[in-house]
Design a protein around this nucleic acid. Sequence first.
DNA 1: TTATAATATTCCCTTTACGGTATATTCCCT
DNA 2: AGGGAATATACCGTAAAGGGAATATTATAA
Lengths: 105, 105
Amino acid sequence: MDTSIFAALAEPSRLRIIELLREGPLTVGAIAIQTGLRQPQASKHLRVLSDAGLVEVQRDANKRYYKLRQEPFLEMEAWLESCRRVWDERFDRLDHYLKELQGKD
Amino acid sequence: MDTSIFAALAEPSRLRIIELLREGPLTVGAIAIQTGLRQPQASKHLRVLSDAGLVEVQRDANKRYYKLRQEPFLEMEAWLESCRRVWDERFDRLDHYLKELQGKD
DNA sequence: TTATAATATTCCCTTTACGGTATATTCCCT
DNA sequence: AGGGAATATACCGTAAAGGGAATATTATAA
């Protein structure tokens, strides 16, 4: 799991941007307005998100539409899935079983 | 979605700790050894993870067993779910439909 | 080609995060 | 009570992150 994905999402404005992009692609200007960011900061945050692979850009004249990329989201889902078995009933029972074995030494 | 969760996971050593805890609860000492961290750093990272609600501690004499908490993982799964609809087939079609409407102006 | 709109980058400054080391705390054992 | 193990906290120094403002880039239109 690449930590740069989490690092990108750790900044409130960037998380906000991601949430805006759930509705569909947006230009830098639109993002700046909807987040209350100044244009340079919006660009800079989008750069970080882009470097982390969370968004991609689609050019249209001198506007740039940013949109979400699916891959990192799939990666996160897979990672969460790998954590999920901790709370899996069967794993819990196995855990207790092993603990009991240890206790017998 | 609380960004402190992502901030906690953004640090490589902390992500590693979480991944170790997938196997079950561990003491600070065990975590320090398995990650190659010195004990104080391990404690500090665990503090961050704890403040973010990702782990909880269970005392046993002067040892402390850290284990994963389920809630933030459920929260992340729900959040990812809210992003998922972007790639939903139907949403995509609606998007194209709206774009076509705009083009007619 | 020049003006303008949209976006990206640079520089500076301040704050925050992290590692290292020392020290404090807590608990057990005798 | 005193010693030692396990863990937490404090303090310091450095490096990275983030905002602000100015400037550079790219594309369009006249």
